[in-house]
């Protein structure tokens, strides 16, 4: 790890002003991605602004058909929240499938969403559920938030404070894990709310998480696995690597989407 100057933020405002002041600084949430990246010397932040003590950024509220999760809420809290399990079980299950128990004890929803790793789980939930990402400055719709690989609409000094998920009628997330790293080779989140169906795919796209609109249109007419059986996912724009080529990923997107539709509740 390269040397950096460590700051412990006492408030969101302080974290934001430190982040704005240090162009090459990085905000530290749970550290489950940032610290390994720094250890491999793939990142060299000049300053680390630790948000670990911002306890007012932790908490879950389910009210008026919306699940609102504050940014520093750990995965374990989402996975085991009785309220989330009741209102939006697909989200609790997604959280329960991130990393391993020790990772879920540290990793946060805000960190995952802000990092926008192309194989992360939460971005798929945000996109499929039509979530709103609240920051210290504004509210951004998920559709406008995820820009590309590790890239979001967040500006320097802008910090995610909470994410609100409208509760759908039905939803489910299915992930095909890399057998070694356990990250998603393909993950598909399907959500139905009234006549609107949204399908978000993580792990596969060369630009990160994306919506599968052909599936969405077919599922809006007939919400069944059969409805998307014959829709071919294009290979263009999908990752090809040592773990899975684009053809295989395209195939898996269909399989995971059909499983998610069948399991949606």
């Amino acid at each position: 790890m390269y040397a950096f100057t460590y700051h412990k933020a006492g408030s969101v405002a302080e974290a934001a002003s430190l982040a704005a002041k240090h162009d090459d600084g990085k905000l530290l949430a749970g550290g489950m991605t940032l610290l390994p990246t720094m250890k491999q010397r793939l990142a060299q932040p000049s300053d680390i602004i630790d948000m670990g003590k911002l306890d007012d950024l932790r908490g879950i509220e389910v009210k008026d058909g919306v699940v609102a999760i504050k940014a520093m809420t750990r995965h374990v809290a989402v996975a085991t929240s009785a309220e989330v399990m009741k209102a939006l079980p697909a989200l609790a299950e997604l959280a329960a499938g991130i990393g391993d128990p020790a990772v879920r004890n540290r990793g946060t929803i805000g960190g995952s969403v802000a990092n926008n790793d192309p194989a992360a789980d939460y971005p798929a939930a945000c996109l499929a559920l039509g979530a709103t990402i609240h920051t210290n400055k504004r509210a951004v719709k998920a559709d406008d938030f995820f820009i590309g690989l590790f890239e979001t609409a967040l500006e320097q000094g802008e910090i995610i404070t909470s994410i609100s998920f409208p509760v759908p009628d039905k939803a489910n997330y299915q992930k095909f894990r890399n057998p070694a790293s356990r990250y998603a080779i393909v993950g598909v989140f399907v959500a139905k709310k009234g006549g609107d169906v949204r399908v978000a795919v993580t792990g596969a796209g060369d630009g990160g998480v994306f919506r599968q609109k052909d599936f969405e249109a077919a599922l809006a007419k007939d919400f069944s696995a059969k409805a998307i059986e014959n829709i071919k996912q294009a290979e263009k724009g999908l990752n090809s690597d040592i773990h899975a080529d684009a053809e295989y990923r395209a195939h898996l997107i269909g399989v995971m989407a059909r499983r998610a539709v069948a399991a949606a509740k």
């Binding site: 610290l35 374990v76 391993d100």
Partner: peptide, 29 residues
């Protein structure tokens, strides 16, 4: 492994299992 995969470094922090290779000492003041 030193890459938060293997779990040989797991300790409890405030009662939670944590991979101690992936936490800054300064964070745990």
């Amino acid at each position: 492994c030193d890459t938060s995969q293997c779990g040989c470094c797991v300790v409890h922090v405030n009662g939670d299992a944590v991979k101690s290779c992936t936490a800054l000492a300064m964070s745990l003041e």
